[in-house]
Amino acid sequence: MPLLLINYPESFGRNLRGIRYAQAEGGVVFGPAAANISLGDITSFGRKWRKQMVVLKKINLTKAFAAFDETWSPHIGGDINDFQIKLTKLDGAFHWHHHEEEDELFLVVKGTLRMKLREENGGDIVLGPGEYIIVPHGVEHCPVAEPTCEVVLFERNTTLNTGNLENERTIREPKRL
């Protein structure tokens, strides 16, 4: 896995060979002085500054969605502060529900999603691949996949997939990809 080297000391000697080595290994090097890292410091960095090392990986959505078959079962694809990126496959209609405090972003990757909304909220909105909708907290909605579709959700990590409902589709602890 590529390593991201961050916040290393400025006292590291300038050595372009070290930077090229890190980049050849799939790493990204930056910090207070991006060119100030030596080949020897890359290995000592791992021992001395382990807490400042972060593993980065790119996510291929096609492969991520192929990793699971369950529908209406969000899988965590990543964390951003107090938010999560969740991938889910939808099939047919869900249940009418709302979220008391959390807004939700639905980004359609594949298929068609009909977001059913009450008339006072403008009625149904149909989304195709590459389109998204943000459902504000408190707005009752019912996602309907026409046919099975793949959706990326962006929401707080405390967001329960069934909102104010508790039923057989409630997922309290989503699986991680």
Score class of each variant (00 low, 15 high):
Lys63Pro: 01
Leu61Thr: 03
Gly77Gln: 03
Asp79Trp: 09
Val55Ser: 08
Ile76Tyr: 01
Ala67Phe: 03
Pro74Lys: 05
Lys58Tyr: 12
Lys58Cys: 10
Leu61Cys: 08
His75Tyr: 06
Ala64Gln: 05
Trp72Glu: 04
Asp69Ala: 15
Ala64Ser: 12
Asp69Gln: 14
Thr62His: 12
Ala67Pro: 00
Leu56Tyr: 06
Asn60Pro: 02
Ile76Phe: 06
Phe65Tyr: 12
Ile76Cys: 07
Phe68Met: 02
Leu56Asn: 07
Val54Gly: 02
Asn60Glu: 12
Asp82Pro: 05
Val55Lys: 07
Ile59Met: 13
Ala66Asp: 15
Ile59Glu: 11
Phe68Glu: 00
Lys58Glu: 14
Asn81His: 09
Lys58Arg: 15
Phe65His: 01
Ala66Asn: 11
Met53Trp: 12
Asp79Asn: 11
Lys57Trp: 09
Leu56Thr: 14
Ile76Ser: 07
Phe68Trp: 02
Gly77Tyr: 02
Asp82Gln: 12
Gly77Arg: 00
Asp79Ala: 10
Ala64Asn: 04
Gly78Leu: 11
Ile76Trp: 05
Glu70Met: 04
Ile80Asp: 11
Met53Ile: 15
Ile59Cys: 11
Leu61His: 04
Leu61Asn: 02
Ile80Asn: 09
Lys57Ser: 14
Ile80Tyr: 09
Ala67Ile: 03
Leu61Ser: 04
Ile80Trp: 10
Ala64Pro: 02
Val54Asp: 04
Phe68Ile: 01
Ala67Asp: 03
His75Pro: 00
Ala66Tyr: 01
Met53Glu: 14
Lys58Ile: 10
Leu56His: 06
Lys58Met: 13
Asn81Phe: 08
Glu70Pro: 01
Thr71Cys: 10
Ala66Leu: 05
Ile76Lys: 04
Phe65Gln: 01
Ile59Val: 15
Asp69Glu: 15
Gly77Ser: 05
Phe65Glu: 02
Ile80Leu: 12
Leu56Pro: 02
Ser73Lys: 04
Asn81Gln: 10
Lys58Ala: 14
Ile80Gln: 10
Thr71Gln: 02
Asp82Glu: 14
Ser73Glu: 04
Lys63Phe: 13
Asp69His: 13
Asp82Tyr: 08
Val55His: 03
Asn60Cys: 12
Asn60Ser: 13
Pro74Phe: 06
Leu61Val: 05
His75Gly: 00
Ser73Asn: 06
Trp72Gln: 03
Asn81Gly: 08
Ile59Leu: 15
Thr62Lys: 14
Pro74Asn: 10
Asn60Ile: 07
Ile59Ala: 14
Lys63Ser: 15
Gly78Phe: 09
Asp79Leu: 08
Asn81Leu: 10
Met53Cys: 14
Ala67Ser: 12
Phe68Lys: 00
Lys57Gly: 13
Ala64Phe: 11
Gly78Glu: 13
Ile80Gly: 07
Ala64Lys: 05
Trp72Thr: 03
Thr71Trp: 02
His75Val: 05
His75Asp: 01
Val54Ala: 07
Val54Phe: 11
Ala66Cys: 09
Ala64Glu: 08
Asp79Gln: 10
Lys58Asp: 14
Lys58Trp: 11
His75Gln: 05
Lys57Arg: 14
Ala67Gly: 05
His75Ile: 02
Leu61Trp: 04
Val55Ala: 09
Glu70Gly: 01
Thr71Gly: 01
Ile76Met: 07
Ile59Thr: 13
Ala64Leu: 12
Ala67Gln: 04
Ala64Trp: 02
